[in-house]
């Protein structure tokens, strides 16, 4: 097999007890990024378990509402992965995605969220390794940023409500 296997299965388990484990939602387009994620699997590239993939036909299907909903429900980070520029299966959907994500990042700031919690990346169907590195890097970045402040605020208000109720 190839020399690019990345982290060996055994090495991944060495996580520190009690450290923050972020929850990440990864939207993948059907034609490039979802296929890239599959290729990572076929190539047995190991990566953290903190993400869940949602398949969309095109990255341009990712409605800003989906991203906001994910954050509102407690996601610590959201990845949007699409075909490289000029490779879009639907001609130019990814160009729209790029513009939408740029705007959405501004909006996140207004909500008091660090815009870096949302990340757009191009991953092609042959880039299993890039899928792996994107997941690894983003997981680490979010781990450093800590939990979604909206979630904490909600928990806090729930706790306060709970206390006042008693």
């Amino acid at each position: 097999m190839s020399t690019q296997q990345g982290t060996s299965p055994a090495a991944v388990t060495a996580t520190t007890e009690g450290q923050f484990e972020p929850k990440i939602i990864a939207f993948c387009c059907n034609w490039c990024s979802y296929a890239g994620a599959d290729l990572a699997g076929v190539s047995r590239l190991q990566m953290p378990t903190n993400f869940l993939v949602l398949r969309a036909m095109c990255s341009a299907r990712v409605d800003p509402e989906f991203v906001l909903r994910a954050f509102a429900k407690g996601a610590d980070g959201v990845l949007v992965l699409g075909c490289h520029p000029a490779d879009c299966h639907y001609i130019g959907g990814n160009y729209r995605t790029r513009r939408r994500i740029a705007l959405l990042k501004m909006l996140l700031e207004q909500y008091g969220l660090d815009p870096d919690r949302l990340h757009l990346e191009w991953v092609s169907a042959s880039e299993g390794v890039k899928f792996q590195s994107t997941i690894k890097d983003f997981t680490e970045k979010i781990r450093e940023m800590g939990p979604n402040p909206l979630k904490e605020a909600e928990e806090e208000s729930a706790r306060v409500k709970g206390e006042s109720h008693h």
Binding site: S8, G41, T49
Partner: peptide, 16 residues
Amino acid sequence: NIRDQCSWIHMGEPEK
């Protein structure tokens, strides 16, 4: 997709 995008990429972490 619990094979390509789960068991194959989290081989050392059965519980997770």
